[in-house]
């Protein structure tokens, strides 16, 4: 059976897993964004806590994903929960780092002028600093998302949802009928998801970057 025939014949299951994959990634990245932006804002007055948390989240990124998923099994068992948890933890570093950088690099003259006209620190954050840091933050989210799409495949090792299932199943019975096609379909689908999301982020960036920053 050719690869195209295989995909056509298994379209339903592949697209189901693809959608699942997408959901897991978006959920994890959504959680990671909320946590990262929260941490970045919450640690503004405690630079030590901030660099400690940045260091920790950076270190987590160096743990091989297979090992991290394995370590989570005793605590969270198999399935969706450990997958999402691990992905969230991985996604934090790029987003946190970019949020911190973005907020720190807002033009100090703009902040000075805004404070000088009597803007409270809350309003300053809401209408000046976050909007101006947004393109940098969004880029962090994009990097985290693409990274998470790839790592999510490993989740299948702990019976997690998504396209990893096709890859692992195919690999497990390599040499069997359509085993290669099955693995390949998982890989191709993951690449497709990554590309799709990348394009999506370019669009989101275009739409959400304040107009005056393009000019």
């Amino acid at each position: 059976m050719s690869f195209v025939d295989y995909v056509a014949g298994n379209f339903e299951i592949i697209s189901f897993l693809l959608l699942q994959h997408l959901q897991v990634v978006l959920l994890a990245v959504g959680l990671a964004t909320a946590i990262s932006v929260g941490v970045a804002i919450g640690t503004e007055r405690s630079p030590r806590a901030r660099s400690a948390l940045l260091a920790v989240s950076g270190t987590i990124l160096t743990i091989p994903s297979f090992a991290l998923f394995g370590l989570l099994i005793p605590v969270f068992g198999l399935g969706v929960a450990p997958t999402i948890l691990a992905l969230t933890v991985y996604a934090i570093f790029p987003i946190l780092r970019n949020t911190v950088t973005g907020l720190e690099h807002v033009d100090s003259a703009v902040i000075d002028a805004a404070r000088g006209m009597g803007m409270s620190s809350g309003r300053l954050l809401r209408i000046v600093r976050l909007p101006l840091a947004w393109p940098v933050i969004l880029n962090g989210i994009r990097v985290a998302t693409i990274m998470t799409v790839a790592i999510a495949a490993i989740g299948a090792a702990v019976r997690g949802p998504g396209l990893g299932e096709l890859i692992f199943r195919g690999l497990a019975r390599m040499g069997g009928a359509n085993a290669l096609n099955e693995t390949l379909s998982g890989v191709v689908a993951i690449v497709a998801v990554a590309l799709l999301l990348d394009v999506l982020f370019v669009l989101i960036g275009k739409i959400t970057t304040p107009r005056g920053l393009h000019a």
Partner: peptide, 23 residues
């Protein structure tokens, strides 16, 4: 209150500091 004070004192700086994302 400092914010209240500043809202009634005009402040102009060399780098201007207009908010670039606002018209």
């Amino acid at each position: 209150d400092p914010d209240e004070l500043r809202r009634h004192i005009g402040y102009v700086i060399q780098q201007v500091g207009l908010l670039p994302h606002l018209s």
